[in-house]
Design a protein around this nucleic acid. Structure first.
Length: 542
RNA sequence: GCGCCAGUAGCUCAAUCGGAUAGAGCAACGGCCUUCUAAGCCGUAGGUUAGUGGUUCGAGUCCACUCUGGCGUACCA
């Protein structure tokens, strides 16, 4: 429909030159009395042309070469909107398009041949993933799905650091627990990781090695074993919600490959770094930032900035056209420095898109739980998945805009998981499957021969909404907004349920039944594909 | 103090980058199953979009200030 309108206006530009002046866009009005699509060009032009918007609108409408079989009427309304109403038979024809395109309906090859990298989760292996990581994980994976839908070849990447202070403390924590198991009196310091899982790791070590490890350094087998077990645990958790990474990128490799040194050298050559108080500083003030920052501490250890910059430069060198970083809002302050560093190295920082999502607040029994991995008062993602299931988790994190804070009432989620809107969507899908099963026994088959019979209000509304699916996918993808898909699907399910209540298939006149069957097959296709973008399953029965 | 994100129905959140009468779900109340799945449908009620000004044909959306909450503001990551 939109394409038709766009073509219509393209022709019109020959007659009305002033249309070249503005970008013509078509929107779906909130209220259907204002048409299927609407444009505000007349109002946009009013100021430039110094003419009344309604006058411009009527001039445009008079000059449109309208095909009466496609457009039923064109109206001028309100302050100067031009509203378009399509004919029911044209709308019904959409079914055919969807069935013909099938699985590829809604897919684009706009970015075919382009490579994208989506980096997400990237939690260091110091403990199990929390519910907070869950939002990051689901958001990242779904954005990756969306990018694939518009043609990108996507790599999912997990960046981690298994060196440094955090990991040292982790090793010490495990060793302390191990010594406690051997009956030693140990001061279990406050800075240690307090979680139960540390004890489990220590127990495993004890079972395998007895007391032989008593003189081993904390940074040796204790740290290594902890890292291994925790990483296994993290991967298992992610697998449960269908997330698989293509690459696990170890920060350490940046040192081994000499990447850190070479970046450092470039900064020195470009005179963007200097020594002060025994540390090496990066001249961020020359790169448009507020203040200079330390990249190598006086101890000789780099801060996170240097490896992060080096890491991102490898992404450019690996040939990505688009790099998406998914961070929680606690990383807010880090990325401008990194982007400035990248730019200083001569890379185009516009190819990096940073998505900062807001935090998840967990409520349990009316109380807010403050999360900290070290203090171990977190709720693990694993527990949540076991409690409410994969689909609920994926849907829940996908249904809200990433920029809004999220409240998760655990008590409610556990008790009332039936109320989750995800079931509403899945139910629509299962209902269609059920009809198809029943119809099969009756020997009825779908047909696109008499689609014009789909002219009732609920059929037409369903059809129009189905038609918007590709637009929604594209919009959601280029804006990195998975929640648009969730909203779209909820509306689609609502329109289907309404159709289901008002229009019967079995018992209807044969031609009508056949056309309606085609319609619900198209609906099911879109539901299924939409759910697959979100990573939610589409059950045949419920 | 400064920076970023937010503040919308009792609760959780939408609102197609400034569009028309601000919408869903949950919770509340009232209807609809001898016919394809009632995890559904229909209806009622619920709002000065935190506040005050401004910009214009038009503001929940943009600007300024104020209030409230979250996250930052490291030689932690």
């Amino acid at each position: 429909m939109k394409e038709y309108l766009a073509r219509l206006f393209e022709q019109l530009k020959n007659n009305l030159n002033y249309l070249e002046e503005v970008e013509i866009s078509f929107n779906v009005p909130q209220n259907s009395v204002n048409g299927d699509y609407s444009t505000n060009v007349a109002m946009m032009l009013a100021k430039k042309l110094k003419r009344a918007p309604r006058e411009i609108a009527s001039e445009i409408v008079e000059n449109l070469q309208i095909d009466k079989n496609i457009l039923e009427k064109v109206e001028i309304a309100g302050a100067g909107f031009i509203n378009f109403f399509f004919t029911p038979s044209f709308v019904a024809g959409i079914t055919k398009t969807i069935l013909e395109k099938g699985e590829s309906f809604g897919r684009f090859d706009t970015y075919k041949g382009k490579k994208a990298n989506v980096e997400f989760v990237s939690a260091n292996p110091t403990g199990p993933l929390t519910v907070g990581h869950g939002r990051n994980a689901v958001l990242g994976d779904t954005i990756a799905n969306l990018l694939e839908w518009i043609g990108y070849e996507v790599d999912r990447e997990y960046y981690f650091n298994n060196a440094g202070r955090q990991m040292r403390v982790l090793g010490e924590s495990v060793k302390a627990r191990y010594l406690q198991l051997l009956g030693k009196e140990i001061d279990f310091k406050e800075e240690y990781y307090q979680g139960e899982y540390i004890i489990d790791i220590a127990k495993n070590l004890f079972e395998k090695h007895g007391d032989k490890l008593i003189d081993e350094p904390a940074e040796g087998i204790f740290k290594d074993e902890a890292e291994k077990e925790i990483f296994e645990n993290i991967k298992n958790t992610l697998r449960k919600i269908n997330i698989e990474f293509d690459t696990f990128f170890n920060e350490k490799s940046l040192y081994d490959s000499g990447k850190i040194d070479s970046v450092l050298k470039i900064f020195k050559e470009k005179k963007l770094s200097y020594e002060k108080d025994g540390a090496t500083w990066l001249k961020l003030t020359e790169l448009g930032q507020e203040q200079d920052k330390v990249i190598i501490k006086s101890t000789g250890e780099p801060t996170y900035r240097l490896p992060d910059i080096a890491y991102h430069s490898t992404k450019f060198e690996r040939g990505y056209d688009l790099m998406v970083d998914i961070f929680g809002s606690d990383h807010m302050a880090t990325y401008p420095d990194v982007l400035a560093g990248i730019e200083a190295l001569g890379f185009d920082k516009n190819k990096v898109k940073v998505i900062i999502h807001q935090f998840v607040t967990i409520m349990e029994n009316g109380e807010i739980i403050k999360m900290s991995t070290r203090k171990a008062n977190f709720v693990t993602l694993d527990e949540l998945i076991d409690e409410v299931g994969k689909d609920v988790v994926r849907y829940f994190f996908n249904m809200r805009s990433y920029s809004s804070h999220m409240n998760f009432d655990l008590t409610l989620a556990k008790k009332q998981s039936d109320e989750n809107p995800v079931f509403y969507l899945q139910y629509a899908h299962a209902r269609i499957s059920s009809i198809l099963r029943t119809v099969k026994d009756e020997g009825l088959q779908s047909s696109v021969e008499n689609l014009e019979l789909l002219n009732s209000e609920s059929e037409q509304n369903l059809l129009k909404h189905l038609h918007r699916f590709p637009d929604e996918v594209f919009y959601a993808a280029v804006n990195y907004e998975p929640h648009k898909i969730a909203n779209y699907l909820e509306q689609l399910a609502a329109l289907f349920h309404k159709f289901y209540t008002e229009c019967r298939i079995i018992g209807s006149e044969k031609k009508l039944a056949e056309a309606r069957l085609a319609l619900i097959i198209a609906t099911q296709t879109v539901l299924k594909k939409g759910l697959s973008i979100l990573g939610v399953s589409a059950p045949e029965r419920m």
